[in-house]
């Protein structure tokens, strides 16, 4: 036993364990639990029926009550495991009167037995309430919200990539009067958060008639100073000789931009695209203000509205939260390396 323990706690270099190792072990162990646990709990809960969600204490896995079709009864009857003086057996409930349940043996449906409800527990097995996921799409507006979110995310990202890279190109590859001023202006507004300009921005968006329009959500977000800044820094590293050589070959400035500079900027564009997708998918405060009609809600705004109702239907809400989480989790799984490199390198978020 002690030898096994010694093997398990053996360390590289044969050093003894000190308190920092124990601490590392504890910190990482609880981190797995605290960081992944809540999201995992959300996913497990989202498959539970409303009755199961109301249970306290909750079960870990989603269960479904078993039913059985018994001769002589139209609808399937719920199955219960009954334990009393007569022993333990599985019965189907016909009806309940007060504290007494009338039950039948599925094998022998003729004879009705009376059982105190304290003596029975429902027979359940692991089962998933897929309806939690289907109903919001079929009966409520969630299909619409999803479409709106996809539209906003896709269009905003495309416009961001195009306009930001064009501006970054002009600001990095041409000498002109006022260039320094524009660059300083962009850097100065780098940190101006939306919450500082909410009110006047609303009046402007309303002035151009974009309230309750998805374009009113998209346009104020696409001229991100962050994007211009990031792309410009990257383009500055592209040697000007390349551009000169292209001009010798009679390439137009536009061709130089999209055939030479853009492909060389691909890594920075990829980082910006990933961040833009995550930003726009997750945007909440601005859409919340611009969109007040249900047809134009994005997923985030729709979820919030749903969660704010007097009688929160948690079984639907949890399932839709999982749906909202999926694209970001996919981005995380496949593109984590780009994101962590982007943050560590530029402090971007």
């Amino acid at each position: 036993m002690s030898r096994a323990l010694a093997f398990l706690t053996r360390r590289k270099g044969g050093d003894a364990w000190d308190w920092t190792d124990v601490f590392t072990f504890l910190w990482l162990g609880s981190a797995v639990f605290i960081m992944f646990g809540p999201a995992l709990w959300l996913v497990l809960s989202s498959f539970k029926s409303p009755a199961q969600l109301a249970e306290f204490p909750p079960t870990l896995l989603p269960y479904e009550a078993q039913t059985v079709v018994v001769e002589g009864f139209d609808r399937p009857l719920p199955l219960f495991s009954v334990t009393d003086e007569a022993g333990t057996r599985t019965l189907a409930e016909v009806r309940r009167v007060g504290t007494v349940a009338q039950m039948v043996d599925p094998e022998n449906p003729g004879e009705v037995q009376r059982v105190n409800i304290a003596n029975r527990t429902p027979v359940r097995e692991v089962g998933f309430s897929w309806g939690n996921y289907l109903d919001p799409f079929l009966r409520f507006d969630f299909l619409n919200y999803t479409k709106n979110s996809i539209f906003v995310t896709g269009v905003a990202t495309l416009i961001t990539l195009l306009t930001n890279s064009m501006a970054a190109f002009a600001l990095s590859k041409y000498e002109f009067r006022g260039r320094g001023f524009v660059v300083v202006l962009i850097i100065a507004t780098l940190m101006i958060p939306l919450s500082v300009i909410l009110v006047p921005l609303y009046s402007i968006v309303s002035g151009v008639g974009l309230i309750n329009s998805l374009w009113g959500v998209i346009l104020p977000t696409v001229a991100t100073p962050t994007g211009v800044f990031l792309l410009r820094q990257y383009m500055l590293t592209i040697p000007d000789e390349l551009l000169e050589a292209a001009r010798m070959d009679h390439a137009s400035e536009w061709q130089i931009y999209w055939r030479i500079v853009l492909p060389l900027t691909a890594p920075a564009l990829a980082v910006l695209a990933i961040f833009s997708v995550v930003w726009r998918w997750n945007d909440f405060l601005w859409p919340l203000i611009v969109l007040s009609r249900q047809e134009v809600y994005t997923l985030q705004v729709g979820l919030n509205a749903y969660a704010g109702e007097l009688n929160v239907q948690w079984h639907y809400l949890l399932a839709m939260t999982v749906i909202t989480m999926i694209p970001v989790v996919l981005v995380f799984i496949f593109l984590q390396r780009f994101i962590t490199a982007g943050i560590a390198g530029t402090g971007l978020k």
Partner: peptide, 11 residues
């Protein structure tokens, strides 16, 4: 493990 929640939406 630590980075995963960063990408989740605030909602």
């Amino acid at each position: 493990v630590f980075f995963f929640p960063v990408l989740l939406s605030p909602v």
